[in-house]
Structure formats: structure tokens, C-alpha cells
Design a protein around this nucleic acid. Structure first.
Lengths: 152, 152
DNA sequence: CCTTGAAGCTATAGTTGCTAGAGACATTAA
DNA sequence: TTAATGTCTCTAGCAACTATAGCTTCAAGG
């Protein structure tokens, strides 16, 4: 049996995040010790590692909730899981496209900045006037994969 | 003089977002009509367009705050503006790298899914076991450029 | 057996960048 | 004049956590 700290260390998830996952029902309520501390078994560790890994791949908690409930029914078709993964793939691809356009625009801005004074700065100028842009960086996706978390 | 609705339409920013920008001090307090409605002039429109454009390029509101205060001092060196833009460029580049790794992993998952039942599903399996991964998708950036907003 | 320090507990509030709703007032077109 | 918009303030909500405060529990050393 693992305490919440050990579990977090093994899965690479911070302790408050584990409690948060329990709170929103992504993890079941943990067993408790005599002194009301949470205790976890191997299955809980696997579930948490699954969540962590899916988060790393950019799945939302909602998508993960769906994937988890699918993985609890091993006899059904995996079409739904496949669809979720494909949607995620499309999402990632469209973000890459958009970011690539942004990158081009930023490079142009930075290259053209001669290092003079603000009045002549291309960065400020380009930001102030969209018509100076080469590319169409105008449509957007929905938030990146993770916030900055990293194993403690 | 523009009402807030016209201003938003011209700049491509929703009305509540404009009020929000004013609230957090990114836009100055607007003049008011006799009936206390906000009124804007050309300068306000330019400032808002600047913000909108910078948001489109993925700058945070904090970075934009800095850029705006720089652009108010046209005689100073543009080194600071240049640094902000370069930091943003590095940020975007690192997000692209990370997303590209994710994309490869997702493609592998999806390709290997034979479409059988959950018990054999590669998607579920790979998510459950990081050692099945080809790539190191383990370090992350800090949030994508925009939430889903788009001109009203 | 007792103490100390780390780890755990709950509960609440903060983060970013907005968006949505309620209920009241202003403006404009028919 | 009346109806339909538009605008006002205020509050609360979204994702996905993170941070803080003030407590209790646990494991190890003396």
C-alpha cells in the first residue's frame, strides 16, 4: 500500500493534483488508514499513470474520463477509443499548423528589427498594423497540452 | 466616437473582452457619454488592435502590457521589445517541437489500432504503459496562443 | 515513552484569459 | 410611443491545476 506521496512520486504527479483528480471523480475515493490518510494499491497507480500519460499526450480530462470508462469495458469495440485518439491527433496537427504560421511571423518581426529606437521598431510596428503581416495567423485552437507541471 | 460595440466589431474583439481589458488596466478608462456608456476614439482602436494582434501571435497579456508601455516611449531603445518578441519566438518553437513529438506518438497509436475490442486496443494499451512509447514526450510548454475566440 | 520533523489532512482562494448570466438603464428606428 | 437593440454593473463560471493556512498523523531518534 502506497501513501499519496509515494504514489505521486511513482506516477510523476504532484500530491495536490492527485487529490484534485479524486475530487473531480477521475480517481475513485481512496481507502483510508486508521488516521484517515489515503492509501493506494497497484491498480490505483496504473490508473494514475494512465491519466498522467494521456495528459502528456494532450488529452483533456474529459477525454481521459471517456478513455478510462472505455478501458473498464474490455469486451466492447475500441472504435470509440480510436475516435478519441484521432480527434486528439487532428487537434495537435491543427495546432502545429497554426504555431508554424506564428513562428514565421515572429521570425520576420525579429529579423527586421534593426535594433534602433522604439519609434523605428518593426516589432511594435507590425503588432500595430496587421496589414504588415505576410501570413494569415488568424484562426486558433484550444489550449496547449499541459500547463507547466513536471515531476516534483 | 465609437461605442463599445462598434469598437469591438472594428478590432475583432468581443465587447466583454474590451471591458475586461479595461478592468485589468490594459486599456485606459474610457470616456463616457451622458448616459455613462463608453466612448472610444481612433487611438483607442489602434491600441485595441495592437492587443488583439499580439494575442493572435500568442503573447501573454503580461507581455503585451510590457510592449504597450514600451511603445509609449518612442525614444528609447527597442532592445526590450526585441527581447520580448524573441522570447515569444523561442516559446513557439519549443511548443512546435513538443507537439510534433506528440503527433508522432498519436499517429503510431492510431495506426496500430486494429479496430478490434478494447482488450486489444493499442490506444488504451499505450496510454497505460509509457514504456511502449517510441519518443520522449515528457517536457512541456505553457499554454497555447489563444483560447477559442474568433471575431464575433 | 516522548519529541520532533516530515508528510498528510481539509478548505479556501488564486492563476490566465476570457465567457455567460441577471437585471437595470440608454439609445435608436418604426 | 413603443419595441428592439445595445450597454451598464456585478457576479460566477470554465480548465487544470497551484498555493496557502492551520491543523493532524506518522515514523524515527533519543
Amino acid at each position: 500500500m502506497l501513501t499519496i506521496g509515494k504514489l505521486g512520486a511513482q506516477a510523476g504527479v504532484k500530491v495536490p493534483t492527485i487529490r484534485y483528480y479524486e475530487q473531480i471523480g477521475l480517481l475513485p475515493e481512496a481507502e483510508r488508514s486508521a488516521g484517515k490518510q489515503r492509501l493506494y494499491n497497484r491498480k490505483a497507480l496504473e490508473r494514475l499513470a494512465f491519466i498522467r500519460h494521456a495528459r502528456d499526450l494532450g488529452f483533456t480530462l474529459e477525454a481521459i474520463r471517456d478513455l478510462l470508462s472505455l478501458s473498464d469495458k474490455p469486451d466492447q469495440s475500441c472504435a470509440a477509443a480510436d475516435a478519441i485518439a484521432k480527434a486528439q491527433l487532428r487537434e495537435v496537427e491543427s495546432r502545429i499548423l497554426r504555431l508554424t504560421a506564428l513562428k514565421a511571423e515572429l521570425e520576420r518581426m525579429v529579423l527586421q528589427c534593426a535594433g534602433g529606437c522604439i519609434a523605428d521598431c518593426r516589432v511594435i510596428e507590425v503588432l500595430g498594423d496587421h496589414s504588415l503581416c505576410a501570413t494569415d495567423h488568424h484562426h486558433h485552437g484550444h489550449g496547449e497540452a499541459r500547463q507547466g507541471q513536471d515531476a516534483p
